[in-house]
Nucleic acid binder design. Structure first.
Lengths: 251, 251
DNA sequence: TGGCTGCTGTCGTTTTCCTGTCGGGGTGCT
DNA sequence: AGCACCCCGACAGGAAAACGACAGCAGCCA
């Protein structure tokens, strides 16, 4: 078995990276190089081994030599299309889990049949953190029985990614989807300080238009919900740079 | 003896690398790779070991080397047909239980399949949760004498999968087949939050068409039936994400 | 065969509440 | 003090969910 079993412990991604025996191996297949590279880069930042392919044929070659633990596969490819790639992957006997990328339109219907298993799909344009979250989930599940809940923890704040329960000192917080994603990203990277641009780039769909103060706003809302029943502030502003979540600000 | 003897009560509770129960071993035989693959993926998602075969001859080879605990067998195979495979399996002395897949029409097939030693059958296209439910049942039955009922429980809601009785605080609910399946899936995965896409993909037949609000609708109907005689709501909406069934989280 | 019954999914309306924009005022740094 | 920078109240537009009404259909029984 591969290193997958190590995934999903309740530790921050940063720390887990060093505890993991082997890196997760990710193959990204997309004919749009910027997108493929974006995903690969984020994955590497997370401590994974990532390889890209820009065509279907290329994907098969890479898969054979790289033996990925998981594949991100765009369905819209120039030569062999996504289904063809999947077909030939399966015929070669590999059960590697796949997360599909599709355009907004009707192709999603055809994907449905393929994703029932536990593979997954995402509609373009997607948010990078959401893709990473799905990949982690698929990996955790395919690691077999004995998979554990993924619980993030910072001080007395906990987030269960499966039940989507977020608690501050046992008090349940009710978060909107956006708030949940921002908080998840902050917690995963804690105690790293993140710029607003980073947060925007990871949590919002790539290609999200206008500069705006959405991040500030969401952080503000998060703070109110987190602190309204007391407790020290956990999200700190690093003026002129960004935000961080951790027990206390640097003195 | 095979790992079946190890199977405890609720098949789904088989966890923990330390309590180490062996994984169920499933062989899927279907000449349509996407289908075989689909089933195998779902099974692995549940923590089983799954292997696929795309032809009758292949199936026999795999069976010999893999020694499955249960087999899913399509009747329509290019070379040796399903019955042929079954016969030769039996001749080699294995009593491994078999669940057949048949096309929509073959009423004759059903009877024949059962009388020739098959343990259950399902008509294509099927819903993956229904297939998994049947497999679990067959496994429990063949696990030996004194097999126990599978009863799912969430708060004061119970579902007996064998009798199909669903009770809310001892009051018997009358559910339609679809409602039953949706509720079963929610209960099995409780307290995980499931997206509408997941529910659709698992409970409806593969190949079910696109956009619709069926899931919302069935959930709405379930809620009415569950709550009409009082009691706290158990199915919760996680706005922007999906549904979950559980006792209302504290506070 | 034809009516009856109950199940399922579609449509359209209503309701809920999420999200991003704007702008005034506050805060910290130099 | 002056200037960025940040916080956050208020609000509008719109997305998501709940649900009533209805039509197609399958199974059943006479």
């Amino acid at each position: 078995m591969c290193s997958l079993c190590e995934l999903g412990s309740g530790v921050h991604g940063r720390v887990a990276q060093y505890e993991r025996v082997e890196k997760v191996r990710l193959l990204v297949v997309d004919d749009d190089p910027p997108i493929a590279d974006l995903v690969a880069t984020v994955a590497r930042y997370e401590g994974w081994d990532a390889v890209t392919a820009y065509s279907g044929e290329d994907a098969l070659v890479r898969a054979a030599e790289f033996r990925p633990d998981i594949v991100v596969l765009d369905l819209m490819l120039p030569d062999l299309d996504g289904f063809g790639v999947l077909d030939r992957l399966r015929h070669s006997g590999t059960m590697v889990p796949v997360v599909f990328l599709t355009a907004r339109d009707g192709v999603a219907d055809r994907v449905a049949g393929l994703t029932r298993g536990g593979d997954d799909y995402l509609v373009k344009p997607f948010a990078v953190e959401e893709l990473m979250a799905r990949l982690r989930t698929v990996l955790r599940r395919s690691a077999g029985p004995g998979f554990q809940r993924s619980v993030l923890r910072v001080a007395d704040l906990t987030m269960d990614e499966d039940t989507r329960e977020v608690r501050r000192a046992d008090r349940l917080l009710s978060l909107t989807p956006t708030e949940f994603e921002v908080l998840r990203y902050l917690m995963r990277r804690s105690p790293t300080v993140l710029t607003k641009a980073q947060i925007l780039d990871h949590v919002w769909e790539y290609g999200f238009g206008g500069r705006s103060n959405v991040v500030e706003l969401v952080v503000s809302r998060l703070r109110r919900k987190m602190d309204e029943a007391g407790g020290e502030p956990l999200i700190h502003t690093v003026r002129g740079f960004g935000y961080v979540i951790r027990r206390q600000a640097a003195e």
